[in-house]
Nucleic acid binder design. Structure first.
Lengths: 248, 248
DNA sequence: CGAGCAGTTGAACTTGGTCAATGCAGGTGG
DNA sequence: CCACCTGCATTGACCAAGTTCAACTGCTCG
């Protein structure tokens, strides 16, 4: 249980700033319940690029993401892909759904998971009563985030989509509840996902994402360090653009 | 409470075939609990076109839709609209969310609602224990539906979107669980929403929706009676098209 | 050093959007 | 009862955002 101990610490440490931005995933880990909860689970480690949930497969287990990040997506028969979300430390995966998983989950880097059989939910909720409220609350906030994604995919331009994405990626990095404004200094983000993943998340092609990154760079809104790190030079402008308040 | 009685009957009668396709709305009415639940609520009637939930307003109450249909949407500052869903009899509105509503709800025709203060949820769940499970289950299935909508808005063509919409509208009309196949005869649907609403639901313009209806008509996939009634002549073909299996 | 891959850039093309004219039905008032 | 008005739907012509296809860059890893 040594790894269990450090896992608890890691999860606890990050819990305050989890964003829970992904599909059917909830930051439901309660500080006090956490050690016992982690002790209940079987631990799984997944190497980069491996799928640990497969769309359409029978949904026996659900997972808590305990290290690394994952992308969640579905495919159409001809290969078109839609990334539903990116899962972070503390997110719950595979809870929502019927008897089969609604999406595939693939490790972005190496990933650590706690696995629980679906059938144990009731028992867990009984043992950790606060879990129930957190689950409800997070399912609810997940629905609100989904609505923002519907607006993004249905109505926003490529620029607005990428700006929304950057602002969203920034939110776990800034202080809780603080607004994004220019002048609060530049904000550097890691982007652990590929351009292809970003494109499939935003309903665009990789080329459009790349071009739009280029435009933002030319316009002095961002700088790029390699392909997996961005600095937001004008977060407030990007935030306004994301919301359609500002066109450029 | 005379109206209460008939309301219960109406809701009960339709409950079996509710589709619950809308945002943060759940078909959570339990046959046995229903009369007492309805008796708890204050009744509201809303004329066609009136908004009874406003995006961004403080979320004091939640509603059960007890008659008619409503559209749920959000707006961007410049007026772009995204319709998040259409609410039907038995759907719950305004449950998911923080302290403000995430969308505007507008009556499509005349609408009847049961209103409950948000603060009474705990009490209701205590009194009707099965409500809790239904709420969870429906929130979960709502998330699954949302993922289908992300795929639609992010990756599907105009033809696929409209086909998906028609198939979705058809689902409450066919027998539970029955697949859509050609040869099961034509299927006539009411479309209580305007072309504009359909367009804003599908992330298209009204013109594209109109043109695509025209194409489907020319191709012998549908016939149209007025603007608010369609007959699916080849539901199986439409279903395949909706899923990207077939292009035409 | 070279292969392979992700990302970037450019040019042609396509889909769906924009703008504008026309059609159609329901409602109102003469 | 009919002319007119209004609002929604349809259709057409043109346009633009974003996609497609292809070449090229730069990086990492044998």
């Amino acid at each position: 249980m040594e790894t269990g101990r450090s896992l608890v610490d890691a999860v606890r440490e990050r819990c305050g700033r989890c964003s829970g931005r992904s599909v059917s995933i909830c930051n439901v880990i309660d500080d006090e319940d956490l050690p016992a909860l982690v002790a209940e689970s079987s631990r799984v480690t997944v190497p980069a690029g491996r799928c640990f949930i497969r769309e359409g497969a029978p949904a026996h287990d659900f997972y808590v993401l305990a290290g690394g990040r994952a992308k969640l997506f579905s495919l159409m028969p001809d290969g078109r892909r839609q990334v539903m979300g990116f899962a972070e430390l503390g997110d719950f995966l595979g809870l929502a759904s019927s008897d089969t998983y609604a999406f595939t989950a693939e490790a972005l880097g190496d990933v650590t998971l706690c696995r629980f059989p679906h059938s144990s939910i009731d028992r867990l909720v009984e043992r950790f009563p606060r879990l129930r409220g957190r689950l409800q609350q997070e399912a609810s906030s997940e629905l609100v985030k989904m609505q923002a994604r519907l607006m993004l995919l249905g109505r926003k331009t490529a620029r607005e989509r990428l700006a929304s994405f950057l602002v969203e990626q920034a939110s776990p990095c800034r202080l809780h509840g603080q607004e994004l404004r220019d002048g609060h200094g530049p904000l550097t983000l890691p982007l652990p996902m590929s351009r292809t993943d970003i494109a499939d998340y935003l309903g665009l092609t990789i080329e459009t994402v790349s071009r739009t990154f280029g435009l933002f760079r030319k316009e002095g809104l961002i700088t790029v360090q390699g392909a997996s790190s961005v600095t937001l030079l004008a977060p407030g402008t990007l935030s306004d653009m994301a919301n359609g308040i500002r066109k450029d």
